[in-house]
Design a protein around this nucleic acid. Sequence first.
DNA 1: AATTGGATCAACCGCATTCGG
DNA 2: GCCGAATGCGGTTGATCCAAT
Length: 258
Amino acid sequence: MGRKPCCDKIGLKRGPWTIEEDHRLMNFILNNGIHCWRIVPKLAGLLRCGKSCRLRWINYLRPDLKRGGFTDAEEDRIIELHSQLGNRWSKIASHFSGRTDNEIKNHWNTKIKKKMKHLGLDPATHKRMNDITHQTDPNHMCSTINEGAEIKDQTPKDDVITETTETLILSDNDEELLAKNCKTLCAEEVDLESLFETQGNEISSSPFSSLYSNISRSESSSYLAEDSISLEQWDLDMTDPFVPWDLFANLDDSLFFL
DNA sequence: AATTGGATCAACCGCATTCGG
DNA sequence: GCCGAATGCGGTTGATCCAAT
């Protein structure tokens, strides 16, 4: 028997997205918004399933994505949130504007996890790994205590970890506040103009970097000044695979439900 | 120059949850 | 309340890149 597939996969394309596919998906969403992912590929002329389109949009094409490496402050925040929320990546991602759950999850698995292990911390519990050894095997006590001392000397982040584990127990009020802050953060409109201004080099890692570098500040401001915009109105060269993110600024609000 | 192995991250898979009739 | 469809989510995989040998 087995589960029915989410969509008819016969004839559907898989694997990495091409520029042409990105272009089609982005143009479709720009013009129509998102109402039902299942019909998006059909209407956009893509041989992909809706799920794949959704993922591509959320993780790569979304205009408010930050991209670029994580800062130390962001890493600390991830560790803090992970200590409170566990592997609930979408919840953690909701505390960052412009970061996806997939991005955070990857960063956790490839970088943070290793760092924590290197520091003698269990990434799952955020506690010292040798503390566990301590409890379960008293014969190793001497060696683990020495290791612990060594770790403390070499890790300035220890304080952060200790502090965050202390905040594990939240009162109802705290949780309510946390949820409220999260909502506010998600509801905030993304200021693409300031994003353009402040992100500078970070954008360079994006495939859209060449585009950013080609738009002058005055040009981007004039895009934002338009009241209503359509693709034809912008007079875009549709052979260009990239659409300026600035142009997203005046889209229907419903587009920014994410 | 060729090979190998580790790191990275986009994309997929399948289960869980939500939604609508 | 039930059921099927749609969507969300977290774990995992695999392609690619790059440094080391």
